[in-house]
Design a protein around this nucleic acid. Structure first.
Lengths: 249, 249
DNA sequence: CGTAGGTTTGACTGATCTCAAGTTTGGTGG
DNA sequence: CCACCAAACTTGAGATCAGTCAAACCTACG
């Protein structure tokens, strides 16, 4: 019997449902769409931390759904890394590359990750046969693009403290949307080096900014866990307005 | 008789053809697609410099093709503007918003601009009836997204001189692709304030960096005209690798 | 209990910003 | 054609935010 997405083990079923629900909302999917989705052929892959899932310049022949662990999109300039977005469980990794011949950025695992891979051809076929999916995928990529734009603004126009605070706001909202915690308290297994690579700062300065945010009573990041004491206050300090996430995250 | 895109005045026909050719390449369009495109209903709009074509937070009911003049996508943080991309003649303005209910960024005219507007409904219908168009629009948005990612890298990880140089490289390639000049010499009617808003720098520092690039014999920007003496050298100085434009621009 | 990765701290440097004053450019009206 | 004006550009001096370098300190884990 052929392995279908619907057969995925129960320990990772949650993130798969999150991913489907996101698509269902973006594309207004019906029951037949749902069945088609869960009938997609897949492979389950687990990697260690620090490995690349997609490499810049390579061909992308699969479309993946992140089931557990954190990853990031990044690009290099010389020996310097710039993270351009974080990927949390339930995110689809490769929609940005699905219609393009070569990857223009890499996707790297931050923690050990588990994900499903589906052959790109099958996903494209699904999008073609069922326009609702095409629309859902397209919208998903547009929301990603909106996030990239916000990051340009974040890095280009906000000072170090706001940048870091803004990043935590975004992750809080997206992680909550993925059903992995609340803004008050959630797991975030990224290092200060990662935060620096995402905000265009050095790890040393990230450390100082986190200290400042802690001193302000806004954010605590310890033992890979985040606590946000006063969400409203933090949003103000970060100039965070979640509209750019288009209620999706 | 209904006015169709194909009827557009000859003085702006060039950019319209550029726009269509870009879509044709992205979506592998045939003659019937071509006829459908040129039969779209449209309005021609001309604005003065400095006005907004699309406003953040508003609904986007039209899809526009820029025929002449320069524009930019931008976002505000407080009273500070961050340009997130430039738009040149032949670019489609609103694909980033076509599937989303509200604009997450503004589009502003840099010079006086002329553009065609087509009702979003007609464009969505076209994309639905003719999948080749759906694919072309989708790919166009993906290439935009790739450019946003490169800007995150540019602003986050390159120093001021490289940032400015990189911006000129991108514009040179895109303007050449639009048939509006060559990298050696092209018109670029943007101010140093605009360059600062696009690179996350102050206009004063942009001025100094342009001076440095001029002293290096790399770029001259005078009288709204750019001259690039040594393209290879400039690309090296800017860490510019055009793959992220996906040969489209 | 040793080690590696991650965090914290301090002292110093430097890239970029700010403020402020000129100068040039391009358009407009007389 | 010239005079004028606003916008854009240029330049200088000083302030500051963030980077660099270096060392010490956790803390998870084998």
């Amino acid at each position: 019997m052929r392995r279908m997405i619907g057969d995925v083990m129960p320990d990772h079923h949650h993130s798969l449902v999150v991913a489907f629900n996101k698509l269902a909302r973006l594309g207004d999917l019906d029951d037949a769409d749902r069945d088609a989705f869960f009938a997609l052929p897949f492979q389950r892959v687990t990697t260690k931390a620090e490995g690349d899932i997609v490499s810049e310049g390579g061909e992308v022949e699969h479309c993946s759904i992140l089931l557990s662990g954190f990853a990031c999109r990044y690009k290099m300039s010389g020996y310097q890394r710039q993270i351009v977005s974080f990927l949390v469980p339930g995110d689809i990794l490769d929609t940005q590359h699905m219609q393009l011949p070569r990857a223009d950025h890499s996707i790297g695992a931050i923690t050990a990750v588990t994900f499903l891979t589906v052959p790109s051809a099958a996903v494209l076929q699904l999008a073609q046969d069922r326009p609702a999916f095409g629309q859902a995928f397209w919208r998903d990529t547009l929301i990603d693009a909106s996030i990239f734009r916000e990051w340009v603004l974040n890095i280009g126009r906000r000072d170090a403290k706001m940048r870091v605070a803004h990043l935590f706001c975004e992750l809080a909202v997206r992680i909550e949307a993925a059903g992995l915690g609340t803004p008050e308290c959630f797991d975030l297994p990224i290092t200060q080096v990662d935060i620096g690579d995402a905000t265009g700062l050095t790890p040393v300065h990230v450390n100082r900014m986190l200290g400042a945010l802690r001193a302000d009573g806004l954010i605590e990041h310890k033992h890979r866990q985040v606590r946000i004491q006063d969400w409203t206050l933090l949003c103000r300090a970060a100039d965070f307005q979640p509209a750019y996430l288009h209620e999706a995250a």
